[in-house]
Every structure is written in C-alpha cells, then in structure tokens.
Design a protein around this nucleic acid. Structure first.
Length: 271
DNA sequence: ACTGGCTCCTGAGGGC
DNA sequence: TGCCCTCAGGAGCCAG
C-alpha cells in the first residue's frame, strides 16, 4: 500500500538509474491495469530520453522531450531496476528497457495501479488536473485546511484523504496524523476549531516528512531486486494496533469503519 | 456542491 | 496440513 512516503522514496531511489537514460523498448506483458496501458506508450516512448522523474501526489512522472509517462502504484505496485532480460516474476507487467542494459520494471499483483502516456503537460491530464496542494508544500497549512473544512459535515478523516483537498494522505497516515492531533476521525470537519485544524495540518506534514526521512535512511539499492521500500510500520502509533494500549495514555485503542475505511483511534485522546 | 457507496484485484490471515 | 472465506485498500466514478 504505497503512500506518499513510499512513492517519494521510490522516486528518489530510481532517479539516479533513469534520469538521462534513453528508453530503448517498452514491454507490456499485461495491459489490463486500472486503465489499459495505452498502445501509444509502446509506439512513442522508445527512443526518448527520460529527463526527469518527479512526483505529483502519488503519481510518478517520467518526463521526456515529447511527453510524459504517468505511473500510479495503486496499492500493491512497486518499481525496481532489473538487469535487462532478467527472468520475469509473477505480476511483473511492464518493463521500460533502458540504454544501459537495465530495465525499469513494474510489479503490481492487484493491478490497481496504472501506466499512462501523455504528450501534453501531465499536470493538465484529467487525473492530475484537479488535485489539491502537496501536503509538504507551502500552500498547505491550517488556514487552507480550515477554508476547505468550513461548512463540511463530512468526517475529518474523509476530508484529509480526499485528493482534491490535499494529495498523498492515505489511510495509514490519516489515521496517524489524527491521533497525533488529538482529533477523532469521525468528527465533522466543519465543527473543528481553526486552532485544532492548524495542529492537524502540522501533524500531517510531520508524519509524512518523518516517514519520508525514515525511507531515505533505510533506502536500499534499487538495482537487482532490492528495490522495495518498507512501510515504516515500526513507527506507527495506532494504525494496526486495535485493542492495544494507547501509547500516550494506555487506554485500549478502538477501531471502526469511517467512510468505508478502517480507522483506529484512542477514545480518550481523540475528541 | 456534497456525500456516501461501489468498483477494480489478489494476497494474507483467520477459522475450521 | 490444507482449504475456504473474508477483508484490506487508492481513488475514480456514479447516484442520490
């Protein structure tokens, strides 16, 4: 379940292996991902140089002079650098073969991810055009969050997981940030004080930033099969700890479904 | 304009 | 030991 820290760790790990490389071939073994891998990718990408690998929300973007590859890892996707022609494991659906006898290989057992191709500005692609601000960027702060929460009856957890409001906050980090901020995940967004939303915005930034940092420090070589960043579960306070004592006060952590997503919270610390 | 619900898919884990 | 069932989960999309 790649969340933003995992995507960012992947981006940073891949960059030295793909930037400046020419794509020599595109191999699609399974076209049926979240959306079909477009034929235009195989037709137009070969011969192009990958100038930059960057990220918008959880979308990874590979820029070339004539267009961009848009990759989303869904919840089971991973990318790694393999030796060109190395044996294909199950669920390894797409290879971008590079000019130094390596390939960027996508594995995605559940196929919730996607590999798309656009010749336009990828930020104007329909999947990216409506995205909210980056949580670690300057546009995301307490005032912004308060403006978006105003009048909303939706549970705060659903609001911060809405990519139109802010990108990159998945179930794990939404759960963690709400715990750190002392806010009950089901509380109506519009009924939370500006001061508490300020705190929540800070907690979202902090939890994501520290997870990215942890990913950076544990970043392994993305070559030859060691390319899967971990999920930093060792530093999660409440996610996956239903029934265990709250790390802050010792009260038994509760869980339940909020907005079709499992949530964990401390009934004493979070109001 | 909002909100909740459904959907894609497969691996993991629990129960028997 | 092994099989079967349930569930998780990103996020686009649709219906109310």
């Amino acid at each position: 379940m790649p969340e933003l820290p995992e995507v960012e760790t992947t981006r940073a790990g891949l960059a030295p292996h793909v930037e400046g490389r020419r794509v020599t071939d595109v191999v699609v073994r399974e076209r049926r991902l979240r959306w079909p891998v477009p034929a235009a990718l195989s037709r137009e990408l070969p011969g192009q140089i990958i100038q930059r690998i960057w990220r918008r929300g959880k979308y990874l973007l590979l820029s070339t002079p004539i267009g961009s590859v848009i990759i989303h890892l869904g919840m089971s996707g991973s990318l790694r650098i393999v030796a060109a022609g190395s044996p294909v494991q199950p669920h390894e659906h797409v290879d971008l073969v590079l000019d130094h006898d390596r390939a960027l290989r996508l594995r995605d057992p559940r196929r919730f991810g996607c590999v798309l191709w656009t010749r336009r500005d990828p930020l104007r692609h329909r999947l990216l055009a409506g995205l909210g601000p980056e949580p670690l960027g300057e546009a995301f702060d307490g005032a912004y969050l308060a403006a978006r929460a105003a009048g909303r009856r939706q549970a705060i957890k659903g609001l911060i997981m809405d990519s139109r409001v802010v990108v990159g906050v998945g179930n794990i980090y939404a759960t963690e940030a709400l715990f750190r901020a002392g806010i009950h995940p089901a509380r109506a967004a519009g009924r939370i004080s500006a001061a508490r939303l300020e705190r929540l915005a800070r907690c979202i930034r902090d939890v994501l930033a520290s997870a990215i940092e942890a990913g950076g420090t544990t970043l392994r070589d993305f070559v030859d099969g060691n390319g899967r960043p971990g999920y930093f579960s060792q530093q999660l306070d409440v996610y996956g700890r239903t029934g265990q004592p709250c790390p802050a006060c010792g009260t038994t952590l509760k869980s339940g479904e909020i907005g079709q997503r499992t949530s964990v919270w401390c009934p004493r610390c979070q109001r």
